[in-house]
């Protein structure tokens, strides 16, 4: 009985201790990465390389999934509002939903699965095969050479991908509406302009910038902290995606409250 209580207590102590420990480690990681900002020429070369790499890597999946989102949004808007609301509002709904929520959120989640995971797996493999140690041992700061370019690249690429996703979703919604729902193109375009506020576009892109930071830090951090061979790399990759996704969902809520109040 006493033993069970002690184990139970230990479990809760660990439950509190572990997140605190993790927050500490992440703070150190972020501090090291920020401090590694030097040699801007090399840094920007590495960052641009990463932007190309992650951009090309993720564009297909962004385009395909946001096309699907455009279709389902228009389909639902039409179906749910049949007989209640004039059809001009279908594109209003599409634009609002896409720019404020669906575009940034979908892109954030897709990129954490695509870019965050691959970053974490790549860096995790480098960690467990001592490539990160090798870099440090040859007096090259791994935070500057590996972490920082990736964090900056994904932070910049996420809003760009979000813009592409939003365009694609609106375009696919436009096609669906004009080709299958007898909605004239002019009606659709006019509907888009109803209650469009630039601040919302800006809010959406600001959100995606924050999502990018989240993806970049969780991907690189979990990679740098991978331990124990191939299985360790798999574990840290999973953690990177789960952590980034959960954080993105909460950040979405908090930024929405800030921007759209």
């Amino acid at each position: 009985m006493k033993k069970i209580m002690k184990e139970g207590l230990d479990y809760y102590v660990e439950l509190i201790r572990y997140p605190l420990h993790l927050i500490g480690e992440i703070s150190i990681f972020i501090y090291q990465s920020v401090k590694a900002f030097e040699k801007p020429r090399v840094l920007s070369r590495l960052t641009i390389e990463q932007m190309f790499y992650t951009g090309i890597q993720s564009l297909p999946i962004i385009i395909v999934s946001s096309a699907a989102i455009g279709l389902v949004t228009v389909f639902q808007a039409e179906f749910q509002s049949r007989g209640i609301m004039p059809k001009i509002y279908i594109s209003t709904a599409l634009v609002k939903a896409t720019l404020e929520e669906l575009g940034p959120l979908l892109t954030g989640l897709m990129l954490s699965g695509r870019v965050g995971a691959s970053m974490s797996a790549e860096l995790g493999t480098m960690k467990v095969t001592e490539q990160i140690d090798a870099l440090a041992a040859m007096a090259i700061n791994p935070y500057r050479y590996l972490a920082l370019p990736r964090i900056i690249a994904v932070t910049l690429i996420t809003p760009m991908c979000t813009a592409v996703a939003e365009l694609t979703a609106i375009l696919s919604g436009f096609m669906l509406a004009t080709l299958t729902m007898d909605i004239p193109a002019v009606t659709f375009l006019n509907g888009m302009k109803i209650s469009f506020y630039p601040v919302e576009l800006f809010g959406g892109l600001l959100k995606s910038l924050i999502f990018g930071i989240i993806i970049g830090i969780s991907g690189t951090f979990s990679g740098f902290h991978a331990e124990g061979g191939a299985k360790g790399v798999g574990d840290s990759t999973t953690r990177a995606v789960v952590a980034a996704s959960v954080l993105i969902l909460f950040a979405d809520y908090f930024v929405a409250r800030l921007v759209f109040k």
Binding site: T125, T129, E130, Q131, D133, A134, L135, A137, M138, A139
Partner: peptide
């Protein structure tokens, strides 16, 4: 600076793949 005085041969080679 000090690390520049050293060459380190890691067990598995640790080549950048």
């Amino acid at each position: 600076e000090i690390r520049k005085k050293f060459g380190f041969v890691f067990q598995g080679g640790a080549l950048f793949d």
